[in-house]
Amino acid sequence: MNIPISILDLAPVVTGSNSAQALRNTISLAEHADRLGYSRFWVAEHHAMPGIASSAPAVLVGEIASRTPRIQVGSGGVMLQNHRPFVVAEQFGTLEALHPGRVDLGVGKNSGIEPAAVKALGLSGAQQSTEEFVRAVDELRRYFDDESIAVPAAGNRPRMWMLGASGRSAKLAGLLGLRFAYAHHINPTETVAALAAYRATFRPSRDFTKPHALITAPVICAESEEEARNLAKPGALAFLRMRNIKPGAEPHNFLPAPLDVEKHIYSHEESEVVERYFATQVIGNPEQVRKNLEELLSETQADELMMTAMVHDHHDLIRSYELIADTLPMSAYK
């Protein structure tokens, strides 16, 4: 498994804490990831979600880059429907100028926001069409050209990726000649087909001459399988709560504490949902995690692996990534 291995973090707000602490935890995790030899550290974009503190990727990327000497830092990703390409170019051109060669700009088509934020962002609420997205991507790329009016983006070009979780987005990434980051943690059933479609449709561009695909997988590691499953249970309960939200009900957005998990009485149907949730995760001791990830990469032939995890205790999350780093070879950045 001699490929770059990286981390995606959502800055989850856990029960009993707040968004400021969640952001500090993300920065702390990035510092540990840098020391452990991980290749990239990406942050997401979500709006109006009390349980997710990562709403301003450019700001968070800048802070992380200033705290770490080596690791690639980026967005997983910036949703272009929410922003003017000119502003995105200025932001990430600034980051690339300040941290040359270390900045990834991952862009996505979906808005990635809750309905409550649509009006605040001045959006229509309609989903961006493929044609509109392609125009936005092309415009964004041009702003990084040397003669661009977008200072300091002109001449300071970050490494650009397209994000997606479907075969349609995979084909689009290929046609645009971009690197592709597939959200296996969101849609694991289409991963193999999506990556095949990406490679089949790839057209070389000025930025990339050959296809390059990354997959994001949910991974939790501990000294024993039982401990790893216990660490995964708050995320499973959070998933269950979001799935069971009734119209008009107040969502449970925070990552539950272990005590919440112990108190929750699972129905038969809920238990089945949780088991299906666990089946889509890579959860176990170091040897189990290594074996499962090797099988996943063999099946998908991905060029890079990015991991994400929802763990209540920050120290447990760091320990999980430490165990993985000890188990998997940390390849040089590509």
Rank of each mutant, 00 (worst) to 15 (best):
M1P: 05
N2Q: 14
S6W: 06
S6E: 03
I7P: 00
V14N: 02
S17L: 07
N18T: 08
S19M: 13
I27Y: 14
L29I: 00
E31D: 01
A33M: 08
D34C: 02
R35K: 14
R35G: 05
Y38D: 01
S39G: 11
V43T: 15
E45V: 02
H47R: 02
H47P: 10
A58N: 15
A58M: 03
V59T: 14
G62D: 11
I64E: 04
S66V: 04
T68I: 13
R70D: 12
Q72M: 13
V73A: 11
S75C: 10
G77L: 13
R84H: 15
A89K: 11
Q91C: 06
L95N: 10
A97G: 06
A97M: 11
G101S: 09
D104I: 05
D104S: 14
I113E: 04
A117Q: 04
G122T: 10
A126D: 14
Q127M: 12
Q128I: 15
S129G: 10
V134T: 10
V137N: 00
V137C: 12
E139N: 07
D145Y: 11
D145C: 09
D146E: 14
D146A: 14
I149G: 03
P152F: 07
G155L: 08
N156V: 02
R157A: 06
P158H: 13
P158E: 06
W161Y: 14
M162T: 09
L163P: 03
A165R: 01
G177I: 07
L178C: 11
R179M: 07
P188L: 09
A193S: 12
A193F: 04
L195G: 02
L195C: 10
R203C: 11
R203V: 15
F208Q: 10
T209V: 08
P211R: 07
A213G: 07
I215A: 11
V219N: 03
V219T: 03
C221W: 02
C221T: 12
E225T: 13
E227K: 15
E227S: 14
R229P: 04
L231H: 12
A236N: 02
A238V: 00
F239T: 14
F239C: 03
R243W: 01
N244T: 11
K246W: 00
P247Y: 12
L255E: 03
L255W: 00
L255H: 05
P256G: 03
L259H: 05
V261G: 05
V261M: 00
E262Q: 13
S267A: 04
E269R: 14
E270M: 09
Q281I: 04
N285T: 05
E287S: 12
V289G: 07
R290E: 05
L293Q: 01
E295A: 14
T300N: 03
A302Q: 00
A302R: 00
D303C: 01
D303T: 00
M306V: 08
M307V: 15
D313Y: 13
L317V: 01
L317P: 00
R319T: 10
S320L: 07
Y321D: 03
T327H: 11
A332T: 12
